[in-house]
Design a protein around this nucleic acid. Sequence first.
DNA 1: CTATAAATTGAAATCCGTTTTCAATATCGT
DNA 2: ACGATATTGAAAACGGATTTCAATTTATAG
Lengths: 149, 149
Amino acid sequence: MKKPEEQFLDYLARKRLKNTSQRMTILSAFLRQKAHLSTEEFYLQLRKKHPGIGYATVHRTLKLFAECGIASERNFGDGQMRFEVSLGNEHHDHLVCTSCGQILEFENQQIEQLQVDVAKTHNFIIEDHRLELYGLCSACHSTGQQSVS
Amino acid sequence: MKKPEEQFLDYLARKRLKNTSQRMTILSAFLRQKAHLSTEEFYLQLRKKHPGIGYATVHRTLKLFAECGIASERNFGDGQMRFEVSLGNEHHDHLVCTSCGQILEFENQQIEQLQVDVAKTHNFIIEDHRLELYGLCSACHSTGQQSVS
DNA sequence: CTATAAATTGAAATCCGTTTTCAATATCGT
DNA sequence: ACGATATTGAAAACGGATTTCAATTTATAG
């Protein structure tokens, strides 16, 4: 498995794009982050340490990460695009807490297989898929908490 | 099972909202439509027969349908909100063709059960979920068609 | 059947996240 | 170091969803 840094640099070289300090700063911050942050949230985090980097650059760089395969774009229906590290983090689906916003990942090979079966019966070729369960995470329902607002 | 018309009128009465000709026109057009239309697409269709009805009214009325349970909002990641008749159309997931845009529905009870199992192991209470398979429908891959553009 | 209060309507304006524009700056191959 | 080319940050533009507002329609009370 190639390292994300390497894969990104390869991609830049292949596309004749340039290696800039902003891109490297954003990459290392991105690889360090754990949560599924939106562009806005990520930008606000980054700005604390690197106030010089603009929102547009962050946005463009996250898109580059997605293009070169080290990140994947996610959309949990809240109107914000989110990015997660995908390289070295194999396919998984999500549990999204509607109370605290926490996003947990899970894998289930049986579900994956059943999806393939469904596709087969509809003569459909799967390119991608998404499965999200929305509800209350353990912490939120055990405290009786229903909402953060 | 209550009829959609009835359920909508009950909802209006309960909320002290008014029964207008626009709302009834939109309701009957909505119940008649088969595809998973976006607000914009639905509005353009409707306008052919009912040019007097404005986009804002269509939008507001579709939201009312969702509130009262006869429609459900869907988001297939293309940045458009879509509505489908949900009353009398039990839970199902979707196959979305990335070439022609067609949206097929399917149900799979085994997948549903596995989702419940996953939730249980994470001590998570499911309120809702979404499963979408993206790829090429039968028609699109059998003709070798890869894109409509 | 009015009169009146309240909800609705359509057009236009606003919102809000995403994406693009553009002039100044930085990078990279030579 | 030079010159061509890509990148940057700020601000503008974009696109779909939502709200505003004055005019109109509906429902209720008299």
